[in-house]
Design a protein around this nucleic acid. Sequence first.
DNA 1: TATGTCCATTGATTTAAATCAAATTACACG
DNA 2: CGTGTAATTTGATTTAAATCAATGGACATA
Lengths: 235, 235
Amino acid sequence: MHEVIKRIPLFSGLEEGMVNKISEFCRLRIFNKGDIIFFESEPYRGFYAVVSGLVKVYKISRDGREHIIHIIAPFNTFAEVPLLENLDKITDDDFRYPACSMAIEDNTKVVLVPANEFRDILKNDLNISLRMLSGLAKRLRHLNHHIEELTLKDVTKRTAAFLISVYENTSSNSKLKGSTISLSVNRSDMAAYLGTAIETLSRTLSRLQAEGIIEVTGKKIFIKNAYKLKEISLS
Amino acid sequence: MHEVIKRIPLFSGLEEGMVNKISEFCRLRIFNKGDIIFFESEPYRGFYAVVSGLVKVYKISRDGREHIIHIIAPFNTFAEVPLLENLDKITDDDFRYPACSMAIEDNTKVVLVPANEFRDILKNDLNISLRMLSGLAKRLRHLNHHIEELTLKDVTKRTAAFLISVYENTSSNSKLKGSTISLSVNRSDMAAYLGTAIETLSRTLSRLQAEGIIEVTGKKIFIKNAYKLKEISLS
DNA sequence: TATGTCCATTGATTTAAATCAAATTACACG
DNA sequence: CGTGTAATTTGATTTAAATCAATGGACATA
């Protein structure tokens, strides 16, 4: 657990003693694809850090439609809000998870950081508190961007932006002559993240392919014209 | 300025010495309706706290459509993200505002909290850092909720939810037999916040009126059936 | 190699909301 | 108190995307 904790940016660089202290009360949990990590409005236990695999944080509407708010990659944390919102409160009674989360890859490993134990540390450690601030700020920026996309751009632009972001976060030396990206999510999750229907996403990808900008082969997508794709995403 | 700073929750309850120290480098600025407080991608100076009046934080799309991300009421802060995202950085070069903001009432008073000066305090004060964490967490929850509304609910439900939230935040003792709420924003801003067009919002209000749930008179709206309105917002 | 299940694609149709256009109302200012 | 301008409402039409429906793989398992 010690080694795992040290790799999470929120905790990395802390002195050994503190890492040990935190490691003591954290718990490693392993989930398979489709397993629920927590339900919305379930009593709050603490926040999580993804160690390996992939997690989605999402909301379900009354009529069953799903929207994915975040896709959490390894070494990122999620579900800190209930912990931080009311640091003064003594107990966690009545705190609940504000969304659902689910593992979307097999053998997804996450660390549960229990709320009460961590709060005691946080309230006495400026260092950790500042790290959490940075983390939340990044999350906030991401959400702002997500809202901007959803409200000001159509499905084609959002799809292009999503592909470009995967493309740009993929370290590859052959980008100039195009390269293949490998989507970590299936169509259904991608659509739920982009705020559209599976069919619409499928059509959008087909259209981009017909225009010679990408080449789709299941979860592998060959970016033939990154420049044009970026142009679409920004238009 | 001292008295103003003390009323901002982020700073209230701090010891006098600290309040004085912060007051020294903050600057009071006054804007009229329609005045820009900052543009998107303008160099970052620091964050703001609204003292009186009303401020909107918004994004503009390429084709000129506007979406309001936040409406900031007195004693709340905004634009902290660039400051917090990179607390390590020594200078603020290359930090920019990620959205625009504008006063939407005359005589809107805001306090500018300059980034560099405040960062020095923040990095040495656990108390303030914890308060900022709570503030950001609340903001995060609000944004999550906003995304949920935008993606999982139609215009009628979003409108109902907006009216209900104004209604519930209005202290009134006559709620049982219905009461009048006074919208602080015009149709255009309300539409931009709800992620719809002015005409669609107007039609939606008309429909709710035709159904006997509300009674519209410009910015005054009489809530005839709060129960039904809430029911719509939750459906 | 067949078979069932899941997932993705394609086609047809519907629908909510945007856009375009006009009329009406509110409102600021001389 | 009119007059012009902006804000709002109402009407007609278009459009992007959702939904409904069917088909077409891919893949695992028997």
